[in-house]
Each structure stands twice: as C-alpha cells, then as structure tokens.
Design a protein around this nucleic acid. Sequence first.
DNA 1: ATGGTTGCTTAGCAA
Length: 256
Amino acid sequence: MKLLTWNVNSVRAREARLLAVLERHKPDVACLQELKALEEQFPAEAVKAAGYHAAVNGQKTWNGVAILSREPPEDVRRGLGDGAPDPQARLVSARVAGARVICAYVPNGEEVGSEKWAYKLEWLARLRRALERDFAKGEPLVLAGDLNVAPDDKDVAKPEDWAGTVLCHEDARKALARVAAWGLADVVRKHHPEGGLYTWWDYRMLAFPKGNGLRIDHVLATAPLADRSRAASVDRDERKGEKPSDHAPVIAEFDL
DNA sequence: ATGGTTGCTTAGCAA
C-alpha cells in the first residue's frame, strides 16, 4: 500500500499539479490538506477520472482536508468527533486499503502566546483524546498530514532561524509527542534517522532556493504497520517550477 | 522589529 500526503495549498489552484502527482506516484491513498474549498468546489470529477474516490471535509476559504483512495473509502468520519464546536475542517478519517487512515491539518498557531497558539495546543490534545476514544489500538492506523510541527532540530535546515517558533516550540513538540505516544511511530524517521529531509519551504524570503526547509508533514503509523513500511520519501521536485504548493508530498510504502 | 509570497476574495486575513 502506497500512501501519499500533501498540503496542496488550495486544491483549485493546484488541480493540474494534483493530477500530475497522482499520475506520477500512483498512490493507493492520498491525504490532502488545505483544500481552501467547500466540498462542492472539490474537483471530484477530475479526481474520479484519475481513478480515485474522495472523502472530503471542506470549508469555505480556509482549511479543508480529503482522503483519496482507489477503493471506496468506508466509515468516513469528519472532524475530531468530540462534540465540541468545530468550525474548522481539519480532520477526516476513513477505512481504506485495510487500515484506518486519518488525514489531519493541525493548526499553524501563528505566534507563540497568541489565541491561535492556544488553539493549536488544544487541538493536538483533542486529537490525542480522539485516538483514545474512537480508535482501537490494535487496528492498523495511519495518521498523515500537515501536523505543523518539526519534531526535532534535525528536521529543520536552519534551526537557529526557527527556534522557539510555533513549528519548533517545545510545547508544540511535546503536544505532538503526546499524540504519537498513543502508539504511533514516525515512518519517515524510521527510514531516514539522520534527518535532513524537509517538506515545507516558506514562499517568502526565497526559502526554497536557500534551502530553508522544515519537516512538518508526517506519516505516523501504529507499530505493526510501521514495521511493515518498506520506504518513505519526500517529492522535493514538486516544490519546483510554476505555481508550486509551499509543501512537498510525502510518500510511504507498506507491505499490506 | 520587519520583511518577504501566495491564495481567497477583492482589503484583509491566514499561512
């Protein structure tokens, strides 16, 4: 099973690139974040023509997530499912390819100390509780998406530029570690323990040409599934050329 | 401290 996760930064602006990515990698499952579109604005016809079903949790203007799959997704769930008011469409999950797949777009947090920062930390705590509440520990489960945290300084090309920011702050790292401590392994780390792989480069300040990247997009999996992962990579070339997303796709392959 | 860029929506917000 090949799984791809990608923050597209507007699915409408990125439609042609999305179709090219699907054609190039031929994933069995694709988790998309930052659709910036309502479900009815999602290019379902083009995606269907490419051979994929889509489970969409959309929203006007911001956020929005989707799971694409070769086989029809089963038991689609939208949101954190904790009954709290949740106007931001940041999570969708489904049973696909023999596993529970959760596609998440964790809040960025804007600035340490801001309201959005508090929301980010709370959202990660809610995600941990959702795992405990809604998902059986024994079932194969993948949590993939833009988790907006670089877990370690080796996931940051220029740690001195990002120290203490919302992507690297120890409280964000701890909150993500609490999610993983439910029973999830970092599949990309497993295959690249040395670090130095990045998935996001700011549009500003020539971050990509300067190599100022961070690894904030992740594929986490329960241990038996992570044990069966045989490769993981970042499609860094997708960040090049005309009108790229600011994120590159992450790809993980499992023996399933 | 500010700046720099992109996308949605059309001036300002979010990342």
